Amino acid sequence: MAGPGSTRERVTGQEASRGGSVRLDDVAVRFRTKKKDVTALRDVSLDVAEGEFVAIVGPSGCGKSTLLKLVAGLLKPSSGDVRLREEPVTGPRHDIGYVFQRAALLEWRSARRNILLQAEMRRMPADRARERTAELIAMTGLTGFEDAYPHELSGGMQQRVALCRALLHEPPVLLMDEPFGALDALTREQLNIELNRIWRETRTTVLLVTHSIAEAAYLANRIVVMTDRPGTIAEVIDVDLPDERDYATTMARPEFARATGRIRDLLGAASAAD
């Protein structure tokens, strides 16, 4: 567990041997409005190893989603440096996957064809796209619903389709911005379990923004806790749990309690619900 106020977590040992996947060095983001200048992020430095799962938590408006946009190249930093797999991020990246809070599926396309939209946009070879779609449908438990339209799918199934779409081109980095925030508690738990399994099978590097302390601790290798705006990193917490995590057993482990307790201490949320 990094000390309070730490803004950098360097990769060592086995993680270093895998190489860096995402790196931010002293990044700041400032916006100018009609009335004033607003600093969304300041002094943000973070290294994420290849194949690592990192969750980002913090107060609303602290810049969590802004951080993902920086990595995706959808937003340029006002200062500092952003790198993806050792390359400077200078514009929109096509080698990432992005999952948002809303599935944003096309209502006139079936689940399969919504997934294949990614292939059409990227001009993937048709045979490989169909093969990969079939793999992902099986992996996410959508078998039998391939030809269903969005209005025929539950919210959880729609998010599974969105996840398949984001993973179709086998991106080395997957960005997830509150993907399960609008779901009921039981569906969210089920998708947490599925996401842990998919991450273990694919070893895609994942950056997950979430407001759920329990979700962050269940899914992540490390948790980045951010301060209120202007957002900076208060602490990076190591989650000392095995990669394969049974849900009920994990929730009862002392390592889980230590991680969630520390997050609540940092956020001043000891009495708040997840």
Rank of each mutant, 00 (worst) to 15 (best):
G19R: 11
V27D: 06
A28D: 08
F31A: 02
K35M: 06
V44G: 13
V48L: 07
A49E: 03
G58I: 03
P59Y: 11
P59N: 04
C62F: 13
V71M: 05
L74G: 02
P77S: 09
P77I: 11
V89N: 12
R93L: 00
D95G: 10
G97T: 09
F100G: 06
E107Y: 05
R112C: 02
R113S: 12
R130P: 01
R130M: 13
R130E: 15
R132E: 15
A134N: 09
E135C: 12
L136E: 01
T140N: 01
L142D: 10
E146A: 13
D147E: 15
D147A: 14
Y149E: 02
H151Y: 12
S154K: 09
G155L: 03
Q158V: 06
A162D: 05
L167K: 12
E170P: 03
E170A: 14
E178W: 04
P179D: 14
A185C: 01
T187M: 10
R188M: 08
N196D: 05
T202K: 15
R203C: 09
R203Q: 15
T205N: 07
L207G: 05
T210R: 01
T210Y: 06
I213P: 06
A214P: 05
A220H: 08
N221R: 10
I223N: 01
T227K: 05
T227P: 03
D228G: 08
R229S: 15
I233D: 09
E235M: 03
E235D: 07
E235R: 14
I237S: 04
D243Q: 13
E244S: 11
D246R: 14
Y247E: 10
T249H: 08
P254F: 07
R258L: 01
R258M: 08
A259I: 10
R262S: 00
R262H: 13
D265Y: 03
L266N: 02
A270V: 14
S271L: 13
A272T: 07
D274N: 13
